[in-house]
Nucleic acid binder design. Structure first.
Lengths: 379, 379
DNA sequence: TTGTATGCGTTATCAT
DNA sequence: ATGATAACGCATACAA
């Protein structure tokens, strides 16, 4: 068939050499005469030849691709809902301009405020450095298993944000390709892992609250039980309090679900308690920024002043934390570095499959801002 | 070899059926008895079988992958520079916490302020809906050609942000897979294209400046010559002025390069001119937000008040535009929608290769904010 | 430095 | 509903 794509054999024929020789120049294996190389290059762009990754992968047993499994977050479902007629029929040209005075007042951007976008960027960077390409998927519900296995069959290794895959699926995947778990540790698991210093971060943050702001009563606002990152962060919280000789609960007494919506409900309950005469703690240390921002929303609505009436802190360092009112004191995770580190650990694992599992913990940054009572840096 | 991965044939043997039948259940082709299907499923997860995408792609002649070529932007090179020892040897565990009072004062995030992150997100969404996966690459310099062709050989189609690939490379790629150009039109090209209403957006914006703010003198701050998007935007600028009966230049008299850094230099020149007695125009209409933000930087430093002394507007709608001081009036591009639309056009093209090229233009939103003198919405 | 032969794991075609 | 068989396009021993 003339409409067919040119193959390596076509190039070889046109250049008057054997397929092997063509393969050699494609793979830069050397041992090719200058003349042959030139003839082949000419043939390649005369034919517009592009090597088939499928055939290469099949023959060489590796693909040069690494996969990234990201969680799907709150706003993602709601976004991108404005279905148009679709590009299927004809030439869909629409020339419209809308004018708005203030766009997306409370919009929560997806990918966790581009939070995971940063991870992708770091991962892409590391992959590029290693001569690899990346494929990305958000693990959405219908058909999750088929799609994830599909990715597993396509890559040399996968980075999985922990918690995004059911355990059995994860193990199925891991039987085929190396897996690096990102952020969050399930103790005893046999996989490589990249995480951040969750406990140490919160510990330093609380130290600051105790030492520099003299706060003595604390409440931790956690996520649902059994979430490794949350557990770690609470551990740091508790440790700091105990070291300071303050009372510390055995477990979080307030629990959200990482999301701003649920945090608002918790905020409302706190306000209701306040109305009943229950005092607010000196500080509410939240498991993440979204939770803290939700509380901020509610307190602002009820005239409760932060940090004057209560101090609020977060964890993550999402963009919205910096631009919140007041700006949020938080523990910043190096998201891009996490992505990069995960891919670096993965490539190391691919190179040496037998090496025992490694855990890499990245440093975090405590960002002191107004929500804990800090004054803006003197101009 | 026992360390080898199980194949479809292994599954067939264990289930006591032929490879064809196994293939049928994997591909949901139907025509398989319930008994056979059950036996096969059991065999699959007993063996931990995962189909090889390479083999599938080779046999079926399509991969279920679409590629995204993104441009590499200003800050990307500088970011991610903090090389550590690398995870290569041993277990690299570092537990550190740094404390900062205010992080990244002027940080320009990469991916154009996550600008292209939004595109990726939209593309991933559309791909997912179509049962496809995506692979992403920033087209970095060393080895660009090899890497891009690599992607081309791996996918069923590619979305290319226009301007990121040299023309001959683009054509090489396009000889093998369908290509959709994103944003920016090179007239006469034979590819599908997705863009936004550049001209209309700026036109409406200038209309607003003329009608509602009574501005009569304008200057357009463009990008380097021959940039399609910039040309379009200038066209809208000029059209609006002419319609209003105002003087309009034939071409931009001020030119940056899309980046904040160069924009600052332009700003300095403007300030120098002012010192020499040249008046500022009523409004500086910029080709993009970064350019506008650069001007804002310089004017703030020199005590020139925006919008009182001069009005500044942008284009794009990046996050930094919303949080700038003052918030920037701009034309917002629907980035995620662009990504989605591009992939939708691509899948349509893959389905019907012969159809003639389509151009899809997405509506933009004029976001009126303080930098043009608008008052915040009444509470 | 170059060529020959074989097999990678799946789908597709054609039978049955 | 199921099976046999032939590609698919390349890498990789191995031979020359």
């Amino acid at each position: 068939m003339p409409g067919d794509l040119p193959t390596l054999r076509d190039v070889a024929d046109l250049a008057g050499v054997s397929p092997t020789t063509v393969s050699r120049v494609i793979n830069r294996s050397g041992f090719v005469s200058a003349g042959a190389r030139a003839a082949i290059k000419r043939a390649i762009d005369e034919l517009g030849y592009v090597p088939s990754a499928s055939a290469r992968g099949l023959a060489s047993r590796h693909t040069g691709l690494v996969g990234l499994c990201l969680p799907v977050v709150e706003a993602d479902a709601g976004l991108l809902h404005s279905r148009s007629s679709g590009p299927g029929q004809g030439a869909p040209v629409c020339e419209t301009v809308r004018t708005v005075v203030e766009a997306q007042p409370d919009a929560i951007f997806s990918w966790g405020g581009m939070y995971f976008g940063e991870v992708v960027r770091g991962a892409e960077f590391a992959a590029w450095e290693a001569g690899l390409a990346i494929t990305v998927a958000m693990t959405r519900s219908p058909d999750l298993e088929a799609r994830v296995l599909n990715m597993a069959g396509r890559v040399d290794g996968m980075v999985v944000v922990s918690g995004t895959l059911p355990g059995d699926l994860l193990e199925h995947v891991a039987r085929r390709v190396p897996v690096v778990l990102l952020t969050g540790l399930s103790p005893g698991s046999a996989h490589d892992r990249v995480t951040v210093s969750n406990a140490e971060g919160v510990e330093r943050l609380v130290d600051h609250l105790v030492t520099d702001h003299g706060i003595t009563t604390f409440e931790y606002v956690g996520a649902s039980t059994g979430t490794p990152d949350d557990d770690e962060r609470f551990r740091g919280f508790r440790r700091a309090l105990l070291r300071a000789g303050l009372a510390a609960p055995e477990a979080p007494r307030l629990r959200g679900d990482w999301e701003r919506g649920r945090a608002r409900e918790i905020g409302e309950e706190l306000v209701a308690g306040l109305r009943r005469g229950e005092a607010l703690p000196g500080a509410l240390v939240c498991c993440n920024d979204n939770t803290a921002l939700g509380l901020l929303d509610v307190f602002a609505a009820h005239g409760i002043r932060v940090p004057d009436d209560v101090v609020i802190t977060g964890f993550d360092g999402i963009e919205a934390a910096r631009t919140a009112t007041p700006p949020l004191t938080t523990v910043e995770q190096p998201m891009a570095e996490l992505g990069r580190a995960a891919v670096e650990v993965l490539t190391a694992r691919i190179a040496v499959p037998a090496r025992r599992p490694v855990t890499m913990s990245l440093p975090v940054t405590v960002a002191i801002r107004a929500s804990c009572g800090a004054h803006p840096p003197a101009g």
